[in-house]
């Protein structure tokens, strides 16, 4: 039986600065109701694409800003707990963000920032997919290609794909399940937490799972 190859795509991206910004938590709440949904993707799930190697940081830009510029740790923690990877859609993420900030403001009306602050500036990312030239038909080829490809391919297949295709899992797990029929490997890939801190760490986690599966296969 011929296996449908997995074609690795990477992506180049450009960040466009949108004409929305917030100088305090209340303005952030207002702007969250206005900005395009692509901007929410850019600041939550896609934050990994531009993130420095900093595993201890909050996982989305809203939480980072609330904790850093607003010095509001309570709000930062609650925003950090919003998991775009567990949400059905970015509109649902928007609802969660609005609900958390509204609730927070009810209990803790935001004081004016004490000193000069860097406002929250909303972005939108323009992604252009490009084939990396790598493809795989077996688990070993897949593992070897994954070790070499540009890091943007991990973003494209693991994060962007979920939103593009409206799926709960990334392309890697999907292909291992459908083309290789390896449910036990699929399950392990699905269990990798996207909140490991960086795309390179996600690569490492995937390589560990795939290498483990290949070792088991060889025994």
């Amino acid at each position: 039986m011929s296996v449908e190859p997995f074609v690795f795509l990477g992506c180049v991206d450009l960040r466009e600065l949108l004409p929305y910004e917030a100088r305090d938590v209340r303005e952030l709440l207002d702007q969250l109701g206005r900005v395009p949904v692509e901007s929410l993707f850019c600041h939550t799930a896609a934050a990994l694409l531009h993130r420095p190697v900093l595993p201890a940081a909050y996982p989305n830009d809203f939480a980072v800003w609330a904790g850093g510029e607003m010095r509001d740790q309570r709000l930062a923690e609650r925003l950090a707990a919003i998991d775009p990877f567990a949400s059905d859609s970015m509109e649902h993420v928007r609802e969660e963000l609005v609900a958390v900030i509204s609730d927070h403001l009810q209990h803790f009306p935001a004081p004016a920032p004490a000193g000069p602050i860097d406002p929250f500036r909303f972005f939108q990312a323009h992604l252009i997919p490009v084939p990396t030239g790598h493809q795989a038909r077996t688990l070993r080829e897949f593992r070897d290609a994954l070790a070499e490809i540009d890091i943007s391919a991990l973003f494209y297949h693991l994060i962007e794909a979920r939103y593009r295709l409206g799926r709960r899992r990334g392309d890697f797990a999907e292909w291992v399940a459908s083309a290789l029929d390896r449910p036990e490997v699929t399950e392990r890939l699905e269990r990798i937490d996207p909140y490991v801190g960086s795309l390179e760490r996600m690569r490492d986690r995937h390589l560990t799972v795939l290498t483990g599966a290949l070792d088991e296969q060889a025994q």
Partner: peptide, 12 residues
């Protein structure tokens, strides 16, 4: 450059 970056730029 980062791993894979040069090959990817060539593809682009």
């Amino acid at each position: 450059a980062p791993r894979g970056a040069v090959d990817f730029l060539l593809r682009i």
